[in-house]
Design a protein around this nucleic acid. Structure first.
Lengths: 206, 206
DNA sequence: CCGCATCCCCAAAGATACTG
DNA sequence: CAGTATCTTTGGGGATGCGG
């Protein structure tokens, strides 16, 4: 059953073509997961709650065929297979950044059925705050998720000598950065520096 | 039949949320069509060859609910209904621009089943060339499609006193801007200015 | 276990006919 | 012209199975 790729838009348009490649359901979220580095099949599935195993396999195949990701076998003694973004796949970062900024404006606080999957925090920190952050060392703590920002570069986990530490829950983080309201977070360190970061954050659309 | 919106990713992530809004099939292409200004239902369908009328209606409803587009009734004597992007919907332009630049790199020359729908030319001129164009007056002619660029702003149709005019077919335009090859296009006017535009264009990935 | 392939079922997309 | 109604087809969600 050699499948001919057929579900295309068939328009000579760079946007339509891009959507032919990463427009399928889950495809861009797979790329999002791999933005934090190479991952194994099972770890990918864990970061994409709700995806069917067959769908994940299909997307990985399609994205590999399209040259967006590559399968790599780690050297012994690990010897596990991981997926990683190609150089071309990495270039999706500006796309996802704009998409994240746009989405953040209508995101709203988390609801009860929103999943807080492992690694959820570092993505918006990297995509949204990173590019517009003033020089400085920020640390964000929500439950056992910790993400940091050093001069615009995002990291998973704590850092040494942070200028500011923001701790709270997901709701509090939303209120702080999007609605500029202090509610459910505790701040220690350079408050003025944090305010400069908040001022640069996206504005809510509503 | 009060539809409960249910096909969400259910992740607290700005990217996933953005895809909940504009990630459905055809949704972003509807927004692309409206980037060139308000359009009527039938004109939208014409610019989206292959879309079913029910799908178009469904997307328009969803996008309106999400606050991305708005339905407007033109003042008499026109009195026709048009759809237009809201301010928030207009903010999708940076997203589409990055997507277009990314897609252009793996687009390739047009194939036989690629449709050249009305208005196809102005989109890449606006999204891709516009932001990186040097000051100047460019005019592009492919068949009866004419798009222009004046100091980075794109227009449909010809302009007065163009510095450069590029005429040819879709394939020639692709070779010129992406592969930097002169094949199937004729150029008149300031060749050096055109070269500066070409130099800034996206590089092919292959 | 990890990395899928297979199967079944349903919801969304495609296609077309039809109506205010 | 601007959609709705209806039918068919396809792709995704979910569970399970199976080889390495």
């Amino acid at each position: 059953m050699i499948e001919r790729m057929a579900k295309h838009y068939d328009q000579y348009c760079p946007v339509a073509h891009a959507l032919d490649v990463v427009g399928d359901r889950w495809a861009l979220l797979v790329a999002r997961e791999l933005m934090q580095g190479p991952k194994r099949y099972t770890d990918l599935a864990e970061g994409l709650p709700g995806i069917g195993t067959n769908i994940l396999a299909a997307r990985l195949r399609d994205l590999e065929t399209a040259g967006v990701i590559a399968k790599k076998t780690l050297p012994p003694p690990a010897a596990s297979r991981v997926y990683e973004l190609t150089d071309y796949g990495l270039e999706l970062k500006p796309v996802m950044r704009e998409l994240a900024v746009w989405g953040a404006r209508s995101l709203g606080p988390p609801t009860t059925d929103d999943e807080l999957f492992p690694g959820w925090l570092v993505c918006p920190v990297d995509m949204i705050l990173g590019p517009l952050a003033p020089p400085g060392r920020f640390e964000f703590r929500v439950g056992d998720e910790i993400a940091s920002l050093v001069d615009g570069d995002a990291y998973t986990g704590p850092i040494d000598d942070p200028d500011v530490v923001v701790e709270g829950d997901a709701e509090g983080l939303y209120y702080l950065f999007i609605e500029r309201r202090l509610d459910g977070v505790s701040i220690s360190g350079d408050r003025a520096l944090l305010d400069r970061l908040i001022d640069a954050a996206p504005q809510p659309v509503a």
